[in-house]
Design a binder for these strands. Structure first.
Lengths: 162, 162
DNA sequence: CGCCATTCAATTGCACACAACTTAATTGTG
DNA sequence: CACAATTAAGTTGTGTGCAATTGAATGGCG
């Protein structure tokens, strides 16, 4: 009786909504800061992975970012049009497409180095606070992903490979 | 020298990315659970506000949800097509449009009551943990919003009305 | 060797999210 | 009262995000 149904609906709104709002607020700050680089926020995430790993197939990129080809294909096409990456079918496996940084894409990294500092400043959070929050969010994501599989309409254990 | 540039770019990826991933993970769980109700996640957020406030103009709805008419207009049109809400120009101010729950929309609330519990279970977090995380995220959002204004290209004090 | 299940990208269709613009109504001011 | 500035919705265009489908290539198995 502490939490009648009405309160449940209210509390619920606040949890999911806070996350939704925070995500969009982050997006907004990145949008402003990344405009100089000519990148959107998701494009920046792709570039971060490429700057770290150099070159990798679309599949691997998707695993790092939890995105599928439906999202990545058009995004990569835009990065290619911007001259930042090249896409080439792998010689060994013609199904796979290797995404590589162009010289221009690699060079952009230097200009991107100041982004993290500006973002960190925008949050007003210290490094430790950020680390703690990140850990919390990762726990949450792991739990939610597991739950999505279980709840899934065909929530069959068949999906839960390994 | 504790944090060379490389580490900054890595850490940065993790903060923004964790939030991005958590938000999408939440979205995924809601997608599954809300499918029964025929609602998308943002549509559910709109319905939550309407269930709480009954009826209100698009503008107010946008303030509660931090969404503008560009997002809300088509979304509300879909909710109207689904028979859950009605839209009617206000008599007192013809610019404004009042969004009201239909009987069907009000009735849907009963079926939505179980959603919060299922979501809470999916997170695996306790009520206190959720509250703490929500508070943290709200701080973050406030800070980011303020920063976005300041960073804004025309980050002129002219924008900061009042 | 030949066939079928699997895998990878790309495409299609739908639904946000947001900037920029348009249109209509209202308010403030002279 | 008339007119400029403001305000509210809606529209347009771009860019994700994801389910479902398609098409090409690969790998396993008889």
């Amino acid at each position: 009786m502490n939490t009648p149904d009405d309160d449940w609906l209210r509390l619920d709104q606040q949890i999911c909504f806070s996350l939704h709002a925070a995500s969009r607020a982050f997006n907004g700050v990145y949008r402003v800061i990344l405009k100089d680089l000519g990148l959107t926020y998701p494009q920046y995430l792709v570039m971060l992975v490429l700057w770290e790993h150099g070159e990798l197939p679309v599949k691997k990129l998707g695993e790092h970012l939890r995105l599928d080809s439906g999202t990545l294909s058009p995004l990569l096409k835009r990065l290619e049009a911007a001259g930042l990456v090249s896409r080439e079918r792998s010689a060994r496996d013609e199904r796979s497409v290797e995404v590589r940084l162009t010289e221009e894409g690699s060079a952009l990294r230097r200009r991107a180095l100041e982004v993290p500092r500006r973002i960190a400043a925008s949050t007003g959070f210290g490094a430790d606070e950020i680390r703690a929050l990140r850990a919390r969010l990762d726990e949450l994501t792991t739990a939610l992903d597991a739950a999505a599989l279980a709840e899934s309409p065909g929530g069959s254990p068949a999906d839960a490979r390994s």
